[in-house]
Write a protein that binds this DNA or RNA. Structure first.
Lengths: 335, 335
DNA sequence: CTGTTAGCGCGTTCAA
DNA sequence: TTGAACGCGCTAACAG
């Protein structure tokens, strides 16, 4: 079922059929309707590979994400899918599990697949050789969830967000605030958020506790419980992501501390699910779906303009704070 | 950067370069190494579109899912991505938001994209015109999360699972068990689970209460609260999915009933997140990632064999039960 | 073991 | 306004 078949069936040349689809105004109305009719009944669909080969544009965008198991990225991908469909692009998502090697592989595969551009969420833009390859090939790309002077990014100011949060907690009466983070060196986002904690504590005139770094999720629960059993124990935990916050809620339960009366827990990410939890998760919210949409939009816009997105086009989206129910004024005994 | 350039640079013909990649054993070791070396330094990657056009195989699989915002499908897609990467395929996922029209669109786009096959999660296989088109084109496909005699499926026996659950709840001492479901007509999965509830109740000699159908998630909370305030109120809720179960936990909170002491809540899906909640979510578990893996595996296997998967190749995966902490023996007053 | 060549389906010249 | 013909990059058939 090719353009040939349609041309034959409609009694015109392939060129006319091609034009009927791509430059309808150049075809006589009667001819056009006839061709459309014929194509319709034959169930003709233009072959994307041939079109790509000819035009050097695939209308496919590559997406590189750490994982889909974290709802943050699933929500983001959903937003990308929306925006891409809107703009007539398809998506080809690959996951890396935070492994640099898989970032490389992903980019290779996507390059070979002739994607017109990519949106990436990487571990660390400064060290990513995958990004270097994209630049070398002058392939348009946008980083999501990042902020970096050398790359076009769509992100939020995670440092400011956490610093603000610290101020908010201090205003509530918290003094002993601990930051809980995944591997800091594995992600510049985690690092950025930790910096926000340190700055926020310093601004409040408090001494920052060492960041509780929980490298492996499997181990996280025990580490947090241990932290909560210290004396003095923290009255509030700031988590570098929402999944970690869930673990903290559980750890509080195991350690016999009620939330929020005896312990405040605040996450980071704003996954939609958090709103349905009991207690509703207090968290710094990022607009995850919008992050995806805007990343795609930035990329698509650049593709239409003909020049790749520049670092100057980077966007910082507004973050928010969901008060939720896992965060409150500390009990007097804990103050 | 085409095969031509590599051939020229290596001083061989394009055919030899092609063979060096696709049938290495047919090329003299020295020649092969030389070509690989040249390609490497030039940064050559074979052009997927040209290869697809020529071979009529894209090594891309289409995926049609309701949404990525429900972790069930995100986990499933992650499993698919794993299996596909393993087998050398890329994925092109599209979401439908449970709308039939978008199922159609998705299939059209994927057909045009020359996918070698598809995995779909649809509303209702019996009524899906999208599936008819796939059959008409003889394009291989597999349905995930479905059970249907006319289609190749990978799913679980949701009816049996819920019937078993009812028996389990009855054994714990529950009599007033209510099923909470999303729109039943919108999904044959929901319908299947509701049938399991009715069968289970009948088998236990209990009269099934009307299924509490909550069409819109936004409205769900109020409907469930109202249900819990009935007299007599149910002592246990079975939810047709985990997201609904979260709402039930919240509704219980709002209605002032403690879980599991005064109300048991059991979900369906086994999203990974449920295990980290407090109380840990009691639920019927499906192997979501495996569902994705096996669907892809079935498809890929068929592709390699050269003939599309048949309904006879369908798989029913084992479901499980996570005891969790949201389900227990009812308090005596409620018995 | 290696080279030459046709053609996959399409869009885009250039002519008519 | 329409048609004929070329070539995008690649694989496979055939020839050597």
């Amino acid at each position: 079922m090719s353009i040939q078949d349609v041309a034959r069936a409609a009694g015109v040349s392939v060129a006319t059929v091609s034009r009927a689809f791509n430059q309808p105004e150049q075809v006589a109305p009667d001819t056009r309707r006839h061709i459309e009719q014929t194509a319709q009944t034959l169930g003709y669909l233009p072959n994307a590979s041939a079109r790509t080969l000819r035009t050097q544009r695939s209308r496919v965008l590559g997406v590189v994400l750490p994982t889909l198991v974290n709802p943050v990225f699933a929500e983001c991908l959903q937003g990308m899918a929306e925006a891409a469909a809107q703009a007539g692009y398809a998506l080809m998502p690959l996951t890396t599990h935070y492994e640099l090697e898989r970032e490389e592989q992903a980019v290779s595969r996507l390059l070979a697949a002739n994607v017109d551009g990519l949106v990436l969420v990487v571990s660390n833009p400064s060290q990513s050789s995958a990004l270097q390859r994209l630049r070398a090939r002058a392939l348009p790309y946008v980083l999501a969830y990042h902020q970096h002077p050398d790359h076009p990014c769509v992100g939020v100011d995670g440092e400011q967000a956490v610093a603000d949060l610290v101020a908010r907690l201090v205003a509530l009466g918290h003094h002993r605030i601990t930051m809980v983070s995944g591997q800091r060196h594995a992600s510049d986002r985690a690092e950025q958020r930790c910096r926000g904690y340190q700055r926020g504590m310093a601004d409040a005139g408090l001494s920052a506790a060492p960041v509780l770094e929980v490298p492996f999720m499997a181990q996280a629960l025990q580490d947090i419980v241990a932290c909560l059993r210290q004396n003095p124990a923290p009255s509030a935990l700031i988590c570098s992501n929402d999944l970690l916050a869930l673990r903290c809620l559980r750890a509080a339960h195991l350690a016999g501390r009620s939330v929020p009366a005896q312990l405040s827990v605040v996450g980071f990410d704003g996954i939609a699910l958090g709103e349905d939890l009991t207690p509703m998760l207090s968290t710094i919210t990022q607009p995850n779906a919008e992050m995806g949409q805007r990343s795609i939009a930035l990329l698509v816009q650049a593709l239409q303009h003909g020049l790749p997105p520049t670092p100057g086009a980077s966007l910082t989206l507004a973050h928010g704070f969901r008060l939720g129910e896992s965060c409150a004024r500390p009990a007097l005994s804990a103050t």
